[in-house]
Design a protein around this nucleic acid. Structure first.
Lengths: 326, 326
DNA sequence: TTGTAAGCGTTATCAT
DNA sequence: ATGATAACGCTTACAA
């Protein structure tokens, strides 16, 4: 910067102002400085600037990059953050790098707020982190949230699936769970409550799963062994639904003629013409926008009260759900 | 840091040394300082440290995060980089953020080297960038590379698919391309050359596509219109292969009994039991390791000669390829 | 409109 | 084993 200043015959301060595009410098000097800078191929040092500013305009995002829903979220987060003047630092969860490790890396980068995609740590830890930087927890319901929360109502989403099936005449509706993580637990509750609301308590039938394709395959086997088979199976996510579809197809069960199957996430998988799975969209873009807004609102507008945004999931009916077989 | 030093009754220099874990400070002071630091809840400021060091130990990675192969690569890159003492800064390609924009962001972060996943910019620009920071181009073949290159031989991979099919007795083998990007072009050449090697020039049959599922569907329609249908279709990636599979199934063509279909990438899609697609693995982990090593080798060992690593792709035979129908 | 100088939180050099 | 002090490259009052 000094070099540029010298060469242009001005002071560092001027160069700084020009590169930040602030009012003040005359058009003539501005042009001269930019020319010299281009010639010297100078670019401002972000670290130094941030150090001086004591701000970073960095948004941390913790994600399991393998998760396709996360990947979609990340894209929207990056886009919307940059619109609001923030850069995103990605903290990728890996086998060797758990949630706490990622959080520490993000903190070391001096992120001013951190968006957690589907965090599984206990909520106490979230609060602890939140004392240091504003935390936005995405996708998971929190009991007594003191951190910001953005999610699509899993209970409601699951209910809408059951409503849809009941509307098609189904009564024997089985649910394949996604394990004991907070999200899976919510989806399970959504199923149970909706069944109850429809007076179908007697038909509540739950098979344990773990969000994997394999658990869908296993669930199909279990279903086939039932004395009276369900007419519809509600999986806790698209991946396990695909496993189910496959196993049913191999057993010669026609979907949806003999049995309806639904997923959850409206992932690329569900959208494949090959699969064409009835599913539930979590509105990734809206969630991303809400998450960034929540963070920026704390940072730039000084909001301190925790905020909860619960989006309404959207049922996407495709060809794997149909009228109950007569 | 000054606070910690004061509270512990030592100088900043000592605190710095202790936090960097260098030899010198006595065990007693070390412990005292760490205690005070914990109490004050102090953490070193990365930016300041980097500013003083004039090093960042940052590796930039440009990626299209929606691409599942990239997502896999990123995971391995992060893991291996951290083993070698580097952090990864992700530059995500988005609709609003093209390759040049991402590169600039990465440069602003003062990345010491940049790994480009499947870059599509002209190779001149790569060289230009390379003059500033070491560039590792992953996945794409370069004519006269002055940047480091890591890739799995697409020509060879495609050849192995054709070899496999020819070994099963196929002759009428059609190829669905992935458009005009460098990778698709290589795969296409691999197909053409392998056909030639087997003396099957007369059967070379190419349908234009673009890596999407839809283009697979379209290709299936084209194939069905052929006077004499091929007995095998070699798609340029898994996604278009899945489109093909779906369309064929709907047309009542049994795979692989009546027609074999292959993909490329060995993606999650291909691995689904539901799909179980014969494909080609690009050895993501090995590519990631090679890319990080190439960068680190330049940075830490001062290598200056460009290096090209060409990995051998691995054919993964699954159930969509079978003997030629008699 | 432009320049001066004092930080920002580290690391590194040289003393002690 | 410890401490003073000068960078590092920028921003920002404040002064000219």
């Amino acid at each position: 910067m000094q070099d540029v200043a010298d060469r242009a015959g001005v002071s560092k301060a001027l160069v700084s102002m020009i590169f930040r595009g602030v009012q003040g410098p005359s058009a003539a000097t501005r042009e001269r400085v930019m020319d010299v800078a281009a010639e010297l191929d100078y670019r401002p040092n972000r670290s130094a600037a941030l150090l001086a500013l004591r701000r970073t305009h960095l948004l941390g995002v913790m994600t399991n990059i393998r998760n396709t829903f996360h990947a979609e979220m990340v894209e929207h987060l990056v886009e919307h953050a940059s619109e609001r003047g923030y850069e995103v630092v990605l903290g990728a969860l890996t086998p060797t790098h758990g949630e706490e490790a990622v959080m520490n890396t993000l903190l070391d980068f001096r992120c001013e707020a951190v968006v957690l995609l589907g965090p599984e740590v206990e909520s106490e830890l979230l609060s602890l982190w939140n004392a240091r930087v504003p935390i936005v927890s995405v996708g998971r319901r929190l009991a007594r949230p003191d951190v910001d929360v953005v999610r699509a109502g899993d209970l409601r989403g699951m209910s809408s699936v059951v409503d849809h099936l009941v509307g098609l005449g189904h009564k024997r509706i089985t649910h394949v769970t996604g394990g004991s993580n907070p999200i899976a637990v919510d989806r399970r509750s959504g199923y149970v409550r909706a069944m109850h609301r429809h007076g179908l308590d007697a038909h509540v039938d739950i098979i344990e799963g773990d969000f994997t394709e394999a658990s869908g395959v296993a669930a199909a086997a279990t279903v086939m062994r039932r004395a009276t088979r369900p007419t519809a199976v509600v999986a806790s996510n698209d991946r396990s639904a695909v496993g189910l579809l496959d196993a049913l197809q191999r057993s010669g069960i026609a979907v949806p003629e003999q049995m309806s199957v639904t997923g959850y996430d409206d992932s690329v998988l569900a959208q494949l013409a090959h699969v064409d799975l009835t599913s539930v969209s979590q509105e990734a873009r809206e969630q991303a926008v809400s998450a960034v807004d929540a963070a920026v609102d704390r940072l730039d507008n000084g909001r301190t009260e925790p905020r909860s945004v619960v989006l309404r999931p959207r049922l996407v009916v495709r060809s794997t759900s149909g009228p109950v077989p007569s």
